[in-house]
Design a protein around this nucleic acid. Sequence first.
DNA 1: AATATATACATAATTTTCTTATGTATAAGA
DNA 2: TCTTATACATAAGAAAATTATGTATATATT
Lengths: 110, 110
Amino acid sequence: MSNSKLYKGSLTTIILKLLNEHDKMYGYEITQKVKELTKGELKITEGALYPALHKLEAEGLLDVEVAKVDNRLRKYYKLTETGTKETVNKLEELAEYIKTMQALVNPKLA
Amino acid sequence: MSNSKLYKGSLTTIILKLLNEHDKMYGYEITQKVKELTKGELKITEGALYPALHKLEAEGLLDVEVAKVDNRLRKYYKLTETGTKETVNKLEELAEYIKTMQALVNPKLA
DNA sequence: AATATATACATAATTTTCTTATGTATAAGA
DNA sequence: TCTTATACATAAGAAAATTATGTATATATT
């Protein structure tokens, strides 16, 4: 995912946020979009992505819809209602995380 | 550590930064300082902290010095020269992480 | 005096999340 | 023809945390 360990735990937030913006996406598309948005800084590996998608689906945050494009399989994921609510929570947690870390790292500004 | 999974992977950064500011600290003191600086938002658990300190020591980033205060044991940790350099790296990684996540979560501002 | 809480360390079992490696299959480009 | 891109998947192992214990002393509460 990256040389930095800080990304551990943020994959779910990333997936949910992208699906919140793009309505429906398939796995490979997510990896490409992340690479594009971060200018190559962050690469989502398949070994992390697919299990994460399956888990989110199992938890009822994502719905899946299979399609065949150019004779190749695609699994389109989209947020459920619960998933949309959870996206809001995850984004709040991210904002809170950043605030907390800044308080630790830059206590003068707190 | 917190209800949010985002803190996973940031403990080392937190420890190094606190030691960079406070010269020498012991484990329990670190847990209290974090609680104080984050107004209770973040609680470092012992099961995470002590193994992390031992690892940083083993890697040569921290030096340890045992003291007895009020008939109780304290292990004071301080940054080695290597540890000071690594602190700079970790803080750069944190800044980069925040930048990257903001690009993902708020692409309009990127 | 007894009990609970705070201080101070530690480790073991388990869980979560990720990396790395591997596997299948089709399409497109060199 | 061979490599790269597209598109999915899982298994083995590593890393970092949680949760549960354990030891021990000091202080505060009942």
